[in-house]
Design a protein around this nucleic acid. Sequence first.
DNA 1: CCTTAACTTCACAAATTTCTGAAGCACGCG
DNA 2: CGCGTGCTTCAGAAATTTGTGAAGTTAAGG
Lengths: 165, 165
Amino acid sequence: MTESASSARDADAVSRFVESFAAQLVEAGMPRMPARVFAALLSSDEGSMTSAGLGEQLRISPAAVSGAVRYLAQTHMVSREREPGSRRERYRVRGDQWYEALTNRDAVLKRWEQALREGVTSLGADTPAGRRMSETLAFFEFLESELAELMERWRVHREKTFGPE
Amino acid sequence: MTESASSARDADAVSRFVESFAAQLVEAGMPRMPARVFAALLSSDEGSMTSAGLGEQLRISPAAVSGAVRYLAQTHMVSREREPGSRRERYRVRGDQWYEALTNRDAVLKRWEQALREGVTSLGADTPAGRRMSETLAFFEFLESELAELMERWRVHREKTFGPE
DNA sequence: CCTTAACTTCACAAATTTCTGAAGCACGCG
DNA sequence: CGCGTGCTTCAGAAATTTGTGAAGTTAAGG
């Protein structure tokens, strides 16, 4: 009795957290379904769930799960695993992997830098606007190199605090 | 002749850059109009434009300018200035200000941390999910402190490269 | 004061995005 | 080899977001 009451409360608590954390992610610009799926994975005990499980907890169609997972996989926030001997698939959030994804807006940064370089060229490096853009470009290049070092420091810090993976 | 041809080409070049840079910002999650307005300001020689000027260059209504500027001001990407003795207002992108805005997702980070803390509590700090969340929380706290130092290093680096503001 | 320029707000129309149900495909299992 | 499960794709419905015109507000200038 206590047992079932407690697991019911847990499911509810999990769901509340999932939705509220997903809401924050959405507000930061992540599409809704990926955000919800990601939050669900993050709060699962295994760190992974099946497609069916996700659909059930979030009350969404298999199609929605599929779309959300595709997004998350493309952005390297989760990885897909086949369950051996079954058509089932598990989606997993791997500790190290998604921290990097968060900061590895590398692709994004690269494209911004490219756009800025074109801007400097086409506006003229000797114009005020061109100079402002050069500086902006320098900032992004700085940022890019710093982020790599930052992640390295995190790995060290993490290992000290939480022990090896 | 050469003069007018050259300024025509400039206007065109500016516009092309504005739109292409704005597109990158949009892809990174910024709403369209704010992105375009910001890009326009960034590539103006003064680093500032009037509402009318923005409307004209971007071919959008005063209402759209108003909305975009409100967004940008709230997120500290631009500041508003009154032109003395006129009802005109100028919107300005100040070098130091918007770098910080970019990294000062501080508000966002703070809310994520809050959500994660609630997650740890409600899922139980001793559960596997709870532990994963604690680690995530630690990552954000780490990130927050690192970002402050990173910006400080940038200020130094910038001053060396570009000279004092 | 009254006029009018400049920005803002509001309600609505349009465009875009998002999610679903249904059909399709692939593969493990009997 | 074919059945059935489980994921994916697709077309369309629904909801959300976005941008506009029009009315509203504030304040400069006569």
